[in-house]
Design a protein around this nucleic acid. Structure first.
Lengths: 195, 195
DNA sequence: ACCTGAACACCGTTCAAGT
DNA sequence: ACCTGAACACCGTTCAAGT
């Protein structure tokens, strides 16, 4: 008793490793060590590291907040911001989720959240899905670049690089992110049926 | 003579390895073996594998075709299609470029191509850059997923999986890709100053 | 059902030393 | 300037065997 480990335990341990060390810390041996167990033990619970990472990505996406807002534009902007916040909350979180994105279930749920909101706004399903796809790719791509930039800057600060002149840094901000989302929403707006 | 190797040689060898075996084939030992050289020899020409991959990504992006078309919408759609085609031309090409994207020079040039075209169309620089960013993230993200899907399907076909019912497959097509680009262009159109 | 122990087949990077 | 040889410190995955 207490001597057996569950999938949820492993994902929890993996998440705390991710938070402290990022993707490079996510080695099977290190995860196993968190539980005082052999690396091979993990393969009883997961068929591969890829499956473990996909589970971890799902777990992160599960925490994306539900959304309020008067207009559909506000609700989608909120959902995008909430997703970005959740990705930025974990070291290498955006890259992890973007990489695991391909066939995952959590990202399917998110895709449906975006698409359903756009459907309710009045888009035909085909347009709603197109816009949802554009939104997801923008949020994941932008946030991945943004996070890599800040994390690299943090390392530079420690090793005393000359101030990375933030022409490049000004490329990333909540403002710029929101303007990207707004441009996509303007495109979606143009697809509305005149009632 | 003939016994010395250049950066360009190495990138050429790496590209042919990529084409035949994808990213997993891109090991320093394997690249070195193509030239009958020790893996450590590569480190005289490149400081790290990451730098080599960035060079390879630049090399791929250099081949993105110049663009013709009557309207700015046509020119940007063409440029997007040309980029997608070039990524799909190399196994794991989209993932490679998307991963190396962060601080690369080739992707800066591409960003400028998109942004300049949108500026000429009449967008203020800030909007042009926002739209260019959305476009690039969509093209890279969509194409990465698309390529992963087809490559996984190819493996399944060999090992005789039951037909992956292409509900999922219909998610990816030139048509769907173009609709995504068109939606972004509609958003950009809404930013045009009334003349 | 759940895990150990040990092995297999790899990785990227460094560095003294050679030519 | 350009490369060798050898080592260092890792990886993911498999599998017989234990309990």
């Amino acid at each position: 008793m207490a001597g057996t480990i569950t999938r949820a335990d492993i994902l929890g341990g993996a998440l705390s490793l991710l938070d402290s060390g990022g993707l490079p810390a996510l080695a099977m041996r290190r995860i196993a060590a968190e539980f005082g167990v052999q690396q091979s033990a993990l393969y009883w619970h997961f068929n591969s590291k890829q499956e473990l990472l996909a589970g971890l990505a799902d777990h992160i996406l599960d925490h994306v907040a539900a959304v309020e807002g008067a207009t559909w534009q506000e609700r989608i902007t909120d959902l995008s911001l909430s997703l970005r916040t959740e990705l930025l909350a974990h070291k290498d979180g955006a890259e992890l989720v973007a990489t695991a994105f391909a066939f995952k279930l959590g990202s399917k749920a998110l895709f449906r959240s975006f698409a359903d909101e756009l459907s309710r706004a009045g888009l035909v399903p085909e347009d709603a899905e197109t816009a949802a796809s554009v939104l997801l790719h923008f949020v994941l791509g932008y946030t991945t670049n943004e996070q890599q930039h800040w994390q690299a800057a943090d390392l530079g600060a420690i090793s005393g690089e000359d101030t990375l002149d933030d022409d490049l840094g000004r490329q990333f901000s909540t403002d710029r992110f929101v303007r990207g989302v707004a441009l996509i929403l303007a495109g979606a707006h143009s697809r509305l049926n005149p009632t």
